[in-house]
């Protein structure tokens, strides 16, 4: 299964972090730091693998991709295929690209919950759920619509009702 998904910028700031097995906050910070430590020391045009066992314990692997100012990192175990995981990073990034029209770091920063919505449609509890970015987009749009609808209903009547109660 996939243990963790991280998006870290080239300065070492985490932009998205998701651990599919519970980790306390300090531990998460430590893990992200050590991952960044390794990634930042790697040259361009080398393989996309990093020895993860020293960081995450036995039977873990790590692949990453570097896009512009962001590292996309997937940590997983032997039940996943390394190359398939690289493809999955591609799927994730493509979906974000569709979502935000030419995704950049700022989009990732400002759309915290949407990032998670997208990711949750691709990976569910550490398992690959969907690999087609069109399908993911469909679900994400549906969810956003629902969210917006529930918020729109809320705002007006709420203020009105509180008026009345006065």
């Amino acid at each position: 299964m996939i243990r963790s998904v991280m998006v870290i910028n080239t300065q070492g700031k985490p932009r998205l972090a998701k651990f599919y097995e519970f980790q306390p906050a300090e531990k998460q910070q430590e893990l992200i730091r050590s991952v960044y430590g390794v990634l930042s020391s790697r040259a361009e045009n080398v393989s996309n693998f990093v020895d993860a066992e020293s960081i995450f314990g036995p039977d873990t692997r790590l692949v990453y991709k570097h896009f512009a100012t962001l590292y996309f990192v997937f940590v997983f175990d032997s039940s996943e295929n390394e190359l398939a995981m690289l493809d999955l990073i591609q799927v994730f990034v493509e979906t974000l690209d569709k979502c935000f029209k030419n995704v950049c770091e700022l989009d990732v920063v400002l759309n915290y919950s949407k990032m998670h919505t997208v990711l949750d449609e691709i990976i569910f509890g550490g398992q690959v759920l969907e690999t087609s970015s069109t399908e993911v987009m469909k679900a994400v749009e549906e969810i956003s619509r629902l969210e917006a609808a529930s918020n729109a209903i809320s705002l007006v009547p709420k203020s009105v009702s509180s008026w009345r109660s006065r």
Binding site: S150, I153, S154
Partner: peptide
């Protein structure tokens, strides 16, 4: 009952709850 609230709450629960 509102979906957007639920979504936030579930996200928070999944993120922060442990055994």
């Amino acid at each position: 009952t509102r979906f957007s609230h639920k979504k936030i709450a579930y996200h928070a629960a999944a993120h922060s709850f442990s055994d």
